[in-house]
Computed example of a mutant assay.
Amino acid sequence: MSASRTSVIAGRPEFTLALLAAAGFVALSVATGGGMLSSGTLGAFFRFLAVPIIIGLSQMVVLAIGQMNLSVGALTGLCSMVAAWMMIDAGLPAPMAVLGALAVGGAAGLVNGLLVVFTRINGFIVTLATMTIIEGLRYGVNGPDTFQGYSPGLRDIGRASVLGLPVVFLVALAVAALVGVFFARTVAGRQLLATGGSPFAARLSGVSNDRSIIVAHGLSGLLAGVAAIITVAASGSVNSSIGDDLLLPSFAAPIIGGVALTGGVVSVVGTCLAAFLVRLVDVMQAQFGINPRWIDLIVGAVVLGAVLLGTVRQRLLRRSS
C-alpha cells in the first residue's frame, strides 16, 4: 500500500472511530478486571448492539437526503407490538409476524415520504407529527400490558450464536452491508445522495427529488421494521414503551459516524462504529452505576461536537474549492 493511500485512509473519520472503539473496548475491559471479555458479557454486548446499528442506519438513509425521521423509535416499537400481537392474539406463525412487522414499517415510512412530498412540509415536522400518532397506535395495540410467551423458535434465534457471535448481530451486519451496497452500487442509492448533495443539480440531471424522498423514508421505515424483529427475537417480551429510548441513538450513530446533516454524505462503517462506541458508554453506565442522565449529557455533547466539526469541515472544503 502506497504512503499516499495510507495517509488518505488514516485521515478518514472511520479510521479515527475505529481507533477510539478499540481503545474504549480495551479500557473498559481493563476497568472491569477482564469481566468484559467473558463469553456471556461479550455475547450480551453484541446482542444488544444489533438494534442501535439498524436504528442508526434507519436514520442515516433519511439524513442522506438532508432530512430527519423523528418517528424511527416509535415506529420500531409499533412494529414490535404488531409482530407480538400477530403471534399471540392472532395466532399467526412467526414468519407471518416478521413479514407483518416489515410491512408496517415500510408502509409507515412510505406515508412519511408521501406526506413530505405532497404537503411540502419539512420532514422534521412531518415525522414529529407521525411520531405522536404512532405512539398512540403503539399503545392501542395492547395498552400498558406486556406481550410475552410468543414463538419459542423466534426467541431461540434471538439467543443463538455462530462462532461466539449472536445471530441477531450478524443479521445487523448483513443489513449494514446491504445498505452499503445500495448507496455504492445502485442507481436509487446514488440518486438519494444526489438529492441530498444538491436538489437543484439532481433535478437538472433528471433525478426526481420527490421519488428520492419517498424512497428514503420508505427504506427508513423498513429498517425500523428490521430493528423491531431483532427486538422481539432478542428480548423475549415487548410492551408499549419499546422504542422510547431509541431516538437519540438513532441520531448519535450516523452523526458521530460522519454523516452530514445537510445530506449527500453517508458512512455505513462510521455509523456502525459510532453505534459500537455508544454501546460501550451504555455498558460503562451499567458497570459503574453512573446516573443515566450523565450518559445522555455525554452522548448529546459528542453529537453536538460532531455536528460542529462537520460544519467547520464543510466550510473549509468550500473555501479550498
Score class of each variant (00 low, 15 high):
67 Q>M: 12
60 M>N: 04
56 G>K: 07
65 I>K: 00
90 A>K: 15
66 G>M: 01
64 A>F: 00
86 M>Y: 11
55 I>T: 14
83 A>Q: 11
88 I>N: 05
71 S>W: 06
56 G>C: 10
86 M>G: 13
74 A>R: 01
68 M>K: 09
87 M>Y: 08
78 L>M: 04
53 I>L: 13
78 L>P: 03
81 M>K: 10
66 G>S: 01
61 V>N: 01
54 I>D: 07
81 M>F: 07
72 V>R: 10
55 I>E: 01
52 P>M: 14
69 N>S: 04
86 M>S: 13
65 I>D: 00
53 I>V: 15
57 L>C: 04
81 M>Q: 15
69 N>H: 06
90 A>L: 15
71 S>V: 09
59 Q>A: 13
65 I>C: 00
92 L>S: 13
57 L>I: 07
80 S>K: 08
71 S>L: 07
60 M>F: 02
67 Q>L: 12
91 G>Q: 10
61 V>F: 03
57 L>Q: 06
56 G>Q: 08
90 A>G: 09
61 V>I: 07
76 T>I: 06
73 G>R: 12
86 M>K: 11
75 L>T: 09
88 I>L: 12
85 W>T: 12
87 M>D: 12
70 L>G: 15
69 N>R: 06
88 I>C: 05
92 L>E: 14
64 A>L: 03
63 L>G: 02
57 L>R: 03
65 I>M: 00
84 A>K: 08
71 S>G: 13
54 I>E: 05
65 I>G: 00
77 G>W: 01
62 V>T: 08
75 L>K: 03
92 L>G: 14
84 A>D: 09
52 P>F: 13
59 Q>D: 11
87 M>I: 14
74 A>G: 11
85 W>A: 15
72 V>E: 11
73 G>M: 14
65 I>E: 01
